[in-house]
Design a protein around this nucleic acid. Structure first.
Length: 314
DNA sequence: TCCCAGGACATAG
DNA sequence: CTATGTCATGGG
């Protein structure tokens, strides 16, 4: 293998691991190398853009992302895969040297956080509550087809952008429920109204100094609690110390970090107070890039569970 | 038929 | 503050 310079090495991401890590739900493989069973090209919906990223000669991805504009693909200026984060020299070095974290990093060295469109991220994780990844995707696809503008992409076909806040703010509950979101329909509509009216200003939240202040703002959105707020902050609003604690991560934290963090026995549901207390301990332990650790641990926990399920059901 | 899913929310104590 | 029940929906 040819020698890679530092900049390249930091950007050698695993597109498959990254895209299939529960951060995004509207991405697909568009070209496959069948001979080597390798995904060569992916496309995804990010707000009002269709993005495309090509695997390199080694099957890994790079930071080079393209956006579809005017019936052609142009280089996308945004650092969507966060190559500005120095994984080797800053992120990994700052994370704790415990077995669980290091195992997860070792298993998924190409896993990355992404920099998503904040509004799409908000709606995605409102939809995610008390649901599962397959159904989240199904609902979001239906929403884009019903409310999002259609774009025709050559060799791929028709793709719908994510709906704008203004459009979803004017949707009816019944229309929204036809997307399969159930009781979350009213949350989605009300949240969209707050975004459309600028009552919630993402840029403002992004500039906030204090983590808990940012959380409180996000929790003012209907359907957004502590966990969803953390997802939005981590995946879209530059808060790398956000650490979403869902069912999976509560198990992980209890199992591997109960002693180190001196945690009590945790139920599957945390009160806001408990959540905040545990988060403080987590950041103290994992450091300023705690969010990366969360993503590595979440990915490992989910893959392990799926492997165990396959073992039982051959 | 019951159980679960990247929880949030209202209500009671 | 904590504890508990409820909330649509689809798949196993």
């Amino acid at each position: 293998m040819a020698r890679l310079d530092e900049k390249d090495r930091c950007c050698r991401i695993s597109l498959a691991d990254t895209i299939d890590s529960g951060q995004v739900f509207l991405w697909d493989v568009t070209k496959t190398d069948h001979k080597n069973r390798r995904a060569l090209q992916w496309h995804g919906v990010d707000g009002q853009k269709i993005l495309r990223v090509d695997a390199d000669q080694y099957g890994a991805g790079t930071h080079r992302v393209k956006a579809h504009a005017g019936d052609r693909w142009r280089n996308y200026a945004s650092d969507f895969f966060r190559c500005g984060d120095d994984i080797q020299n800053n992120v990994i070095k700052s994370l704790p040297n415990d077995a669980a974290t290091q195992t997860a990093i070792g298993r998924y060295p190409g896993l990355r956080l992404m920099r998503q469109d904040p509004y799409q991220c908000t709606i995605s994780f409102i939809v995610s509550t008390n649901s599962n990844i397959q159904k989240i995707r199904s609902s979001l696809v239906k929403m884009t087809r019903r409310f999002g503008d259609a774009i025709t992409v050559s060799k791929i076909g028709k793709i719908h952008l994510f709906p704008t806040p203004d459009v979803l703010a004017d949707a009816t509950i019944q229309e929204m429920q036809e997307c399969g979101v159930g009781y979350r329909a009213k949350y989605i509509i009300e949240a969209s109204k707050m975004i459309a009216s600028k009552e919630i200003n993402y840029r403002h939240v992004m500039q906030m100094h204090n983590y808990h202040d940012a959380v409180n703002i996000m929790c003012g959105i209907p359907g957004v609690g502590s966990k969803v707020a953390d997802c939005i902050l981590l995946f879209a609003l530059e808060r790398l110390d956000a650490f979403p604690l869902d069912r999976w991560m509560i198990r992980v934290i209890s199992r591997y970090y109960g002693d180190v963090l001196s945690l009590p026995q945790l139920s599957t549901a945390l009160s806001d107070k408990q959540y905040a207390t545990i988060h403080d301990k987590i950041v103290r332990y994992f450091g300023p890039y705690a969010g990366y650790a969360q993503q590595w641990l979440f990915k490992m926990a989910r893959d392990d569970a799926q492997a165990a399920w396959l073992q039982k059901n051959p």
